[in-house]
Amino acid sequence: MSIIIGTFITMGVLGIAFGLGLAIVSDRFAVKIDPRVEKIIEVLPGANCGACGLAGCSDFAKAVAEGRAPVSGCTVGQEDVARLIANIMGVVAEAKEKSVAVVMCRAKNVVDKFAYEGVSDCRAAALLHGGPKGCEYGCIGLGTCVEACMFEAMRMGSDGVPEIIEERCTACGKCAAVCPKALISILPISKKVHVRCKSLDKGAVAKKKCGNPCIACKLCEKECPYDAIHVQNFLAVIDYDKCTSCGKCVLVCPTKIIENYEGKRVVVVSASPFKKVKQEDVILSVSKES
């Protein structure tokens, strides 16, 4: 009998002692949390993509509450989320234009220099003689950018160059960051004319490597009424501050490498899956349950 009573008393005393200890510690280490941070985290998309320049959504929420980040800083949530955050913070959100990723290569009939049989990743392939493709400036085509996209806004096109599904693109910039050839640019959606080549080869050399090169003929430069396109290092480059997307250079380009996206934006295929469930997320949720 005394064992049973002793057991109860022992556990009771231990419990009270540890409980008191915890109470003291939690009082000593109390952290004040801004209630707005929680509210902002709730309205954020929760993609943790880092496009805002901060380490994930909770960090961004904290930065907004402390005034270190703008309320419209979340490129993924865009205007809707900016408005919700502005409501929480009690300020007015400034309008921000939607941006999308643009792939600056349109490789056509590019011959391989060698058969690459390594890791199926553009970054790894680029380390080996700049990749297997004949044009060292162009797309390697192993789809690392498609893998990197958290929003399923990219797919490999039939020509072996990735396409952007612009309705889904949130301009987070992940694809641009992983491309070893730096072929992807994040540009405002109102800019519709792009030079889709990055080759710095002279015209004749570029023409041998690819069916769609910029041959640096300067016709676009002469045609542009706004002085917005210039040939530098054998490549036509658009100054997007001056470009009005009038499309005159598109008409004169002999290799048709300057492309007008007016009316050509890739339409959405199916309902947008907001988050792609990754394998490691599944493993994490399994281990949380076990």
């Binding site: 540890f18 200890g21 939690s26 280490f29 952290v31």
Partner: peptide
């Protein structure tokens, strides 16, 4: 039972201290 109590308390203390 008493060991589990000790472990749970210690983990809570670690968590509180780390957060601060």
């Amino acid at each position: 039972a008493s060991y589990i109590l000790v472990i749970a308390t210690l983990v809570q203390i670690v968590e509180l201290a780390l957060r601060k």
